[in-house]
Computed example of a mutant assay.
Amino acid sequence: MRIGELSRRTGVSVPTIKYYVREGLLPSGELSSPNQASYGDRHERRLRLIRALLDIGGLSVAAIREVLAAVDDPDRSVHKVLGEAARRMTPRYAEGGDDASLASARDQVRQLIARRGWQVDACNPAATALSETLAALDRVGHGEFAEVLDDYADAADRVADADLAYVARKAGLDDLVEGVVIGTVLGDAMLASLRRLAQTHRSSTMYEG
């Protein structure tokens, strides 16, 4: 297909497609003449992945380039590719100060990881974000929230199993990464909505009537 048809199929403008090619995110089309290039299904698949990483994942062009480099690395395992995509989508929170609350929270997270036998580095961005969240809770007088950390971790394990079972149905590596992006970002929104629905139901049975 020509670049115009690729644009129509994906909803991405021709100038933007050319920009992605220049930035090394999208492979160049195959030249059919000095001024004409042909694009195939692989280009369409990659272009949709780029848009998912950008629009849904909120990644920068530089971060997308790193994720795609991992996808295209034949020596990179699926686990590492998915880890790279997930790592890039983990929010970075502004630290509230390197105080006793944060030190205690970091220790709680390290203990949680060890207790559950999770094969995760304590320096993982998600572990850092969790430490910051626990520290913030402690600073506003709700440090006891950490007592339900294992209950949350139990739920997270079940959600992760569901996530990866869904992703495992994907055939290609591009599909796998896109599944992680969609599942992580939109899955977070879905999980938050389900939590609120469940809270409303539970509170009605506990505090009303």
Rank of each mutant, 00 (worst) to 15 (best):
G209T: 11
L54E: 15
I182H: 08
D41R: 10
A136C: 00
A127M: 05
I3A: 00
R42F: 02
E147M: 07
Q199A: 14
T90R: 11
A37S: 09
A165E: 05
A156V: 03
A135C: 01
L112P: 05
Y93I: 14
A155F: 01
A165R: 10
D161S: 04
A192L: 15
S32I: 12
S33K: 05
G183E: 08
A70V: 09
V181K: 10
A114V: 09
Y207W: 12
R139K: 09
L194D: 12
R106P: 08
D157S: 03
I64A: 10
D121I: 11
E84K: 01
P91L: 06
A69P: 04
R65C: 14
A165D: 06
G143V: 00
D138I: 00
G187F: 10
M1Y: 02
V120P: 00
R51T: 14
T10C: 09
D75N: 01
L173F: 01
E132N: 05
H43E: 08
D41S: 09
E30D: 03
R76I: 03
Q36D: 08
S204H: 07
R169H: 12
Q36A: 11
L68H: 13
Y19G: 11
T128P: 02
A171N: 05
P91N: 02
C123V: 01
G4D: 02
R202P: 08
R65P: 12
A100I: 13
E95G: 05
V67C: 12
E147S: 04
Y20M: 10
G24T: 01
I64P: 06
E66K: 13
I50C: 14
M190K: 14
G58I: 04
V159Y: 03
N35L: 07
A62D: 10
L191P: 02
E30T: 07
R202N: 13
P27N: 04
L6N: 00
S7W: 07
P74T: 04
R195P: 15
L194M: 15
T16E: 07
S13T: 15
D163M: 00
G24K: 03
A85P: 07
I113P: 11
T10R: 07
R76P: 00
R92Y: 07
V21L: 06
Y152W: 08
G209A: 09
R106Y: 03
A135W: 00
P15N: 04
R46N: 14
Y19N: 13
R195E: 15
R106N: 05
P74K: 02
A165Q: 03
L59I: 12
D150I: 02
D138R: 00
R9V: 01
R42C: 04
L31A: 09
V12M: 05
I64Q: 11
V167R: 06
R196N: 12
A171L: 13
R158V: 04
T133S: 14
R22N: 11
A160Q: 00
P15H: 07
Q36R: 10
D188S: 14
D99T: 05
R8Q: 06
A69G: 06
V12E: 04
S13Q: 13
V78D: 14
S13E: 15
G4M: 02
I182W: 06
R48I: 10
D161C: 01
V12I: 15
L191C: 12
D72E: 04
T128H: 05
H43M: 09
